[in-house]
Amino acid sequence: MTDTLSVERLSVHYDTREGVLRALREVSLAVPAGQIVGVVGESGCGKSTLINALLQLLPENARIADGAIRLNGEDLVGASSRRLRDLRGREISVVFQDPMTSLNPVLSIGRQMRDIQYRDPVSRAEKNRRSAAMLARVGIPDPVAKLDVYAHELSGGMRQRVAIAMAALMKPKVLIADEPTTALDATLEVQIIELLQDLQREIGCSILFISHHLGVIAELCHRVVVMYAGEAVEEGPVEEVFLRPAHPYTARLIECDPGRLKQKVAQLPSIAGSLPDLTNPPTGCIFRARCDHATAACAQKPPRVELDNGHWAACHHAREVQI
C-alpha cells in the first residue's frame, strides 16, 4: 500500500519573544491512498501548525527545522512557490473550520469556484457547469442559482457544504479537513460526516481529518493519530486505538469523554495539570508530568513501541496501559 501523503520526522519551530517555541517535534504520520486518517488532540497539541505546514502556509515567524512532507513521493518542504501553487487546490485541498471566514465575502460562490479551475483550459460555461454539478453533489438545492449568491446569503451548514464542494472540485489526492464540523450543530454534523464519507468513496481521495471530537473520529476514520503537545504519541487503526489504547494520554483522553459514560457518575474524569512550556520542553516523555504510569525510565525519550496491525505508541509502558 502506498502512502499518498507522508510526514517524516517533521519539526516546526516558531521564533517568539520568549525564545524558540518547538510547536512540532519529529512528527511522523502517513495517509494511505483512499483512507480517512484522523488527527485528534486538544488545544495546543499542534494540529493547526501541522495543517499549515502540510500546505506550506506557515506564518513568517515559523520555520520547518527538520523533516519531510511527501505528497505522492514529492517533498513539499523546499518546493518552489510556483510548484506549490500548482499543487494546492488540485492535488491537496482543505476545508477549514469556520466556513464564514474561509469563503470570500465579496465574491460570488460561482466566481470563487471558477477561480479554483483557473488552470483548466475550458470555457467559462463549462466551469460553471462543473461547479453547479459539484454543488448539487454536496446537496445544495437549486445549484445553478446558488452560483450567483454570496457567502452571507447561505446558512452555516450550506456554507460548509460549499466549502467542501470547492475542496472536492478538482478531485484532489488529499483533502485536509480542519475541524469542519466544530462550528455546526449536532444534526448538521452528522450530515457533513456522511457527505465526506460518500465523497471520499466517489473521488477515491485520502482525507486527513483533524478534530478534537473523539466521537466524530471514531465514526468517520479508518486510522487515527493522537497528538499531544507537539508530538504524535500514538497511531493505529481506529478500533485498535479506541478499544486498546497503548499510550496513557490516549487512554485518559478517551476516559474523559463523557459520551462513553452511560451512567451518571459523581466525579467526571479529567487530566490534572497542564501542557508543558514548549519553549523549553521537558526531556524524556512529554506527558510524564501528568501521567499515572510515569516511572524513572520516563526521563528518557520513549521508544516507538510497535503493536499489532500497524498500531504503535511512543511510551515506555505501552504494553501495560489499560482503559
Binding site: D185, A186, L243, R260
Partner: peptide, 25 residues
C-alpha cells in the same frame, strides 16, 4: 430523538440506528 442520536460516540464499534434529519433549521 434525532438530536440524541446525532451525537457521535467515541466507540468505533457502536453503530446505532440514526434518525438523520433532512435540511436545516
Amino acid at each position: 430523538r434525532a438530536l440524541m442520536a446525532a451525537n457521535p460516540e467515541p466507540d468505533p464499534t457502536a453503530r446505532r440506528e440514526r434518525l438523520v434529519l433532512k435540511g436545516e433549521t
